[in-house]
Amino acid sequence: MAMHLPSQRGRGRRAPMADINVTPLVDVMLVLLIIFMVTAPLLTAGVPVNLPDSRAKALDQDQAPVQISLDAAGKMYVEDQEVTDAILPDVLQQIAAKAEAGKPPQVFLRADRTLDYGRVMRVMGELNLAGLNRVSLVTVGDERP
């Protein structure tokens, strides 16, 4: 068996290297991964709401839910659009009309912990009147050790 040693051919010349060095590629990909991991949570923009704590586990989702938010000032938002009490029933009827037959969309209700309980219940009553009965109250996970 013959072995090919690069030192056997011309003493002063080296054979060209045909391998690709993947170390810089891996380094760049890891840096990009870290950048995406850090910036991804920042991309979820929305209405700033001080949510209450809860020990309940997260729900499984089959489609994108409708987000309704009530901030500390009492302003109401459907997705990111501000909505008044007067037009809320019409907006909810439009959402219910877009739903698939027999399956209303999931609604996430986010309310600031400093709000009056009656204010939140009025919104839930409007959701019920519109036929949107798959309502989940969004809370922050429990921070106990």
Rank of each mutant, 00 (worst) to 15 (best):
A2G: 14
A2R: 15
M3E: 10
M3D: 08
L5D: 00
P6E: 13
S7I: 09
S7V: 11
Q8E: 01
R9Y: 03
M17K: 07
A18L: 15
I20L: 11
N21W: 07
N21T: 05
P24E: 05
L25V: 13
I34W: 06
I35P: 06
F36I: 07
M37Q: 09
L42P: 03
L43K: 01
L43P: 01
G46Q: 11
N50W: 06
L51S: 09
D53Y: 04
R55C: 07
K57P: 03
K57Y: 01
A58V: 14
L59D: 06
D62Q: 14
A64P: 10
P65C: 12
P65A: 15
P65H: 08
S69W: 08
L70Y: 03
L70E: 03
D71T: 01
K75G: 02
M76G: 10
M76Q: 12
V78K: 01
V78Q: 01
V78L: 03
E79K: 00
D80N: 10
E82K: 14
E82M: 15
V83F: 07
T84C: 01
T84N: 12
D85A: 14
A86S: 13
I87D: 14
L88S: 04
P89D: 00
V91S: 10
L92I: 07
L92P: 02
Q94C: 05
Q94S: 15
I95D: 06
I95L: 10
A96I: 04
K98L: 13
A99R: 10
A99N: 12
A101W: 00
A101R: 06
P104N: 07
P104V: 03
P104D: 05
P105R: 00
P105H: 02
V107I: 15
F108P: 01
L109H: 02
L109E: 04
A111V: 07
R113T: 09
T114V: 11
T114L: 04
L115G: 02
D116Q: 04
V120P: 02
V120M: 12
M121T: 14
G125M: 12
E126W: 11
L127Y: 05
L127N: 04
N128T: 15
N128I: 10
L129E: 14
A130V: 06
A130R: 06
G131P: 01
L132P: 05
R134Q: 15
S136K: 03
L137V: 13
L137F: 13
V138K: 08
T139F: 14
T139S: 15
V140C: 00
V140M: 08
D142A: 06
P145D: 15
